[in-house]
Write a protein that binds this DNA or RNA. Structure first.
Lengths: 206, 206
DNA sequence: CTCCTGTTCAAACGACCGTTTGAACTATGC
DNA sequence: GCATAGTTCAAACGGTCGTTTGAACAGGAG
């Protein structure tokens, strides 16, 4: 071995990210993960404690840079005055899609993993994801309410939910062949335009 | 037995609808279904042939009235001239949410089932759903392109994908506590307004 | 060298999975 | 009556699941 290669723990997280993203939590066995990671079955329980703890660790690792970037953008926007709805939507959506843009194949794997887990059939798993994506939510909601004074708080919350959902949907690539699959940059622009229009026009009438 | 109660086949479909909608396909065992339906394990393979065939039958039964209503509305709209984007969005979204409105508790169960299966982690299952929801798709796309002459075909397809996705998301109740959970009528209106705005403003710039 | 801590390993645990079997039951047609 | 076709049943099939066990291995500290 020339390169000090990844540790067993890292290999498990990498493979878990990929397989959970492809087959979901229930649909992926620890044996499939450990074989692909060239690790022993018992390694999962040694390093993480259980299958669900492995998932939790993978979600936390995958969400950390996204949350950090969202926080950074929010700080920057709010330091310059009251941000517009478009700026806020951009600050939410782009960090989620930049994964795909900037990190090549691994970025696409991470994005699909995040998107898939966010909509897992099991409420338990969805809540596990929600806990990791929570930290910036209330700040975004407050800023959006300020940017859209004509919309009721309920309407803003409704829009935020739709934004979260559509982003996760595109991340997971669950929407059959997305027309922008081969061009993630266009996807981000199209999604931002779509959401901004919906926020501005579609919510005020409520 | 006084009432001729439902047949084993119907009870299996009803329970499958409910359980698959709660736990997803992988997360729901045939034993859980047959116990709740007061049927023998072997009944599934006798009446349907396999677990997947049971799912297929349940999806077909659940989608039939939705597809029929969408077709009916499309026929009616096109008979009266070129429909607007709002009319088309309404004709797509409302049949999917009317389930919840008109059929009480069972309607909500069916809606959640449909929404959940549409985003199942397994590509196989998603394709099974897509096959059932296909028949009206091309008609909608063509009508939408006519209603939005300023948007490119790709942009219209992108909007249709988002509409499909958001509807399924709200049907599945995967978006944590939806603010309109207790009032499905409002949900339909809000979703239509949200989507119509996005279609009109958000797609023309592409 | 010896101890010790951290890691990996093959093997097995009990539980649950979807599916199949063949016998038992039911009702209808003759 | 009897045969027949449709349905239900308990039981078992082989497999896979997440988890646990206890021994083997590694390498730095004393």
């Amino acid at each position: 071995m020339e390169t000090p290669v990844e540790s067993t723990r890292e290999r498990l997280l990498n493979v878990a990210e990929q397989r959970f993203g492809e087959g979901g939590y229930e649909g992926t066995s620890l044996r499939a993960i450990t074989v692909a990671a060239a690790a022993n079955i018992a390694a999962v329980n040694y390093h993480f404690g259980s299958k669900e703890a492995l998932l939790r660790a993978a979600v936390a690792r995958a969400m950390a840079p996204v949350n950090a970037e969202r926080r950074r953008r929010l700080d920057q926007l709010e330091a310059a005055g009251d941000p517009t709805a478009e700026q806020l939507v951009r600050a939410f959506v782009e960090p989620g899609l930049e994964l795909v843009l900037r990190r090549g194949e691994r970025g696409a794997v991470v994005a699909r993993f995040i998107g898939r887990i966010a909509f897992d059939p099991s409420r338990r798993i969805r809540e596990l994801y929600a806990a990791e994506s929570d930290p910036v939510e209330s700040r975004y909601l407050a800023a959006l309410r300020r940017a859209l004074p004509d919309a009721t708080p309920d309407a803003v919350a409704f829009g935020y939910l739709n934004m979260q959902g559509l982003l996760a949907l595109h991340q997971s690539q669950a929407l059959s062949p997305s027309p922008d699959a081969e061009n993630p940059g266009n996807l981000a622009e199209a999604l931002v335009a779509f959401l901004v229009a919906a926020f501005h026009q579609g919510l005020s009438s409520r």
